[in-house]
Design a protein around this nucleic acid. Sequence first.
DNA 1: TTTATTTAGTTTAAGAGTTAAATTAAATAA
DNA 2: TTATTTAATTTAACTCTTAAACTAAATAAA
Lengths: 394, 394
Amino acid sequence: MLKREMTGDADLIKQINLMLVMNLIREKGPISRIEISKMSKLNKATVSSMVEELIAKRYVVEIGEVKSKRGRRPTLLNFNGDAGYVIGIELNVGFMTVIVVNLNASVHWKKSYLISDNEKEIVDQLFKAIDEARTAVPQSALGIIGIGIGVVGIVNHETGTLVIAPNAGLQNLPLKHLVESYTGIQTFVDNDCNTSVIGESTFGAGKGRNHQILLSVTNRGIGVGIVIDGKVFRGQDGFAGEMGHMTINMEGPRCNCGNRGCWEMYSSPQALIRNFKKNKNIETPPKVDEIIALANAGDNAAITALTETGEYLGIGLANVVNTFNPEVIIIRGDMAKADKWILNPIRRTLSERCYFYASTRIDIVPSRFGELAASIGAACEVIHYWFYSYEQKL
Amino acid sequence: MLKREMTGDADLIKQINLMLVMNLIREKGPISRIEISKMSKLNKATVSSMVEELIAKRYVVEIGEVKSKRGRRPTLLNFNGDAGYVIGIELNVGFMTVIVVNLNASVHWKKSYLISDNEKEIVDQLFKAIDEARTAVPQSALGIIGIGIGVVGIVNHETGTLVIAPNAGLQNLPLKHLVESYTGIQTFVDNDCNTSVIGESTFGAGKGRNHQILLSVTNRGIGVGIVIDGKVFRGQDGFAGEMGHMTINMEGPRCNCGNRGCWEMYSSPQALIRNFKKNKNIETPPKVDEIIALANAGDNAAITALTETGEYLGIGLANVVNTFNPEVIIIRGDMAKADKWILNPIRRTLSERCYFYASTRIDIVPSRFGELAASIGAACEVIHYWFYSYEQKL
DNA sequence: TTTATTTAGTTTAAGAGTTAAATTAAATAA
DNA sequence: TTATTTAATTTAACTCTTAAACTAAATAAA
């Protein structure tokens, strides 16, 4: 936290302490002023004046007193999640999902749209969808505090430009600029794995963990979102985490990325379906969900296919563990629904192949937000900015 | 920067600004007060009072005036590198290197020692060597500000404990505690790849870069040191960067880590020597340096062996690039001396295998500090703590 | 040679923020 | 009814930054 080629002044102090108080209320609320003072080590007087300000700005509400053994009763404070709203968008290939959430990331409205493969049309459809979402936003003190967009592709996070989305045929699309000009609302654009991991780490399966990895396994490929020390890691040009094209078999078949034996050639949903067909003669290839349903019903070919894919996922994840030594790995995508059929083979492969793997030190869990991970995460990016950067916002 | 479960107060402001001024002088010196004021955006008055304090504490010296077109001449300020000294230690398997550097990381004294494989003896030899180094430290204002130790093994950086060093047969050795008790000097313990990358990023081949990877290729194996946003990344338990055991050939031969087809099985110095022997019938297997000398002299078997090893290094580095998207990769170890013989195959393999690789966006360079990388880096860890953490030090 | 102008650096008074101590508020125990 | 306890606010002191005024020391112009 705390970037801004930083000089210290009274203003900075104020922001630091205001954020500290605000986030204690957000995370530990309901909480009293005195507890905040003890936890934050700020003076009671400071806490009182901060709280006064936060109440005036509608971020915080008093929710009454609470019984105590003796002495004056403390007044409990709570974060006012409905003080403002955020629009979150997942811009995928062929479809997009738009949601409206409050400041606690509770989903208030959602809708999915099929979209074009033409740049101009996509932008048009995006604008229309944002307009529709805006009409769904309730009245609130702060209104819409921002728009977050998670895109399947490489994004320059600073400029908010979609550098390239090979599958969608998009290139150098200044999304942030376009959306901000159209709406006048501050907008953040990021890769969908990054928004997903922000969402999971702020409110989801990785809450409270410092180092976490989100593994995204979809038809568009494999990618990871990386959170280090509570911050998303994007690399120099925004393509950190493109681990789907990590070599796990250097003499393997050629991938259309140019490399050989890429991880995602063995572990994608397509590979799962291929594995399944290998063991079971079948006309129309089933979807991932159907294979999972078959496994749950005891179908051996399905179980074998899921196990095998889980092992391949585990091989790559062993590399991930050796590289990042994370506290938690969150799995997103249809396959996460396979639960034990896929998680157990992953865990077994990790313990076989990863010298330092300790199952007690690392959780491997499915995403909490499922299909909405990327869009909720995109909204969380706005919330995160709002509550963890020391810039004056109101 | 700026951790400390942080509440803001006047003291924090002061520390932030003091460090800011100090580091501008360290990095841009010789520099005048007025330039510092412009660059830092701190008020002239603030800068003056900071500088006064820094001069009183001997960190900074005035080195006279400089000509100017008109008006009063500015007084130039310089960082006083000899204000204090640091002891840096590389604790390897069978040997250790001890150095004394000043606050600019200039080496003032160095010595290597063969060491035992017995824990008690190693600690004893370490203490003796530290005593010897202390006698070599010149008089200075601050004296010895700290001791840094880079160890080949997994380290708990917070407690300064060597968790495990498989090759050295050490386990749960509370090095920080032992050395601090013996010397009374603040001590930092870290993995040798981590200290190396700190050194290179502070004063060496990665100076000024935010995201960098140090690749260490030695007889002890392959490992990487990771710097993200200017900070070392160690993971939850300190084994982040154990990428030597990354699978690059999932059906390859078994490694003694339990995995198959680990990167370091193909790219280690031993593998280089093996490759060389394959092409050249020879009695006593030559050392890496000798193979490099042969290549320089035009020996084809040597060139082939180096090329092949470079290609294997490149396969793993393609994974590293896809994972971290770094600005620079620094190579440490004997092989780095092979220069073009190994760097060119690496670059070629990267462009073949890494979709997003752009040779203009990523430097692949040998370590600046060579054999001393780990020990200088260990010392830099102390210096880094001294100049970039907002704790009162004097 | 004197005066004006320019640039560097210091001094001063004001302002913003935190905090310890004193005070007020509101409860229970004696 | 009084004493005690705990929560929260008010007050006065203190630190640090800053804008503005001022001093220092140079060159340019008259």
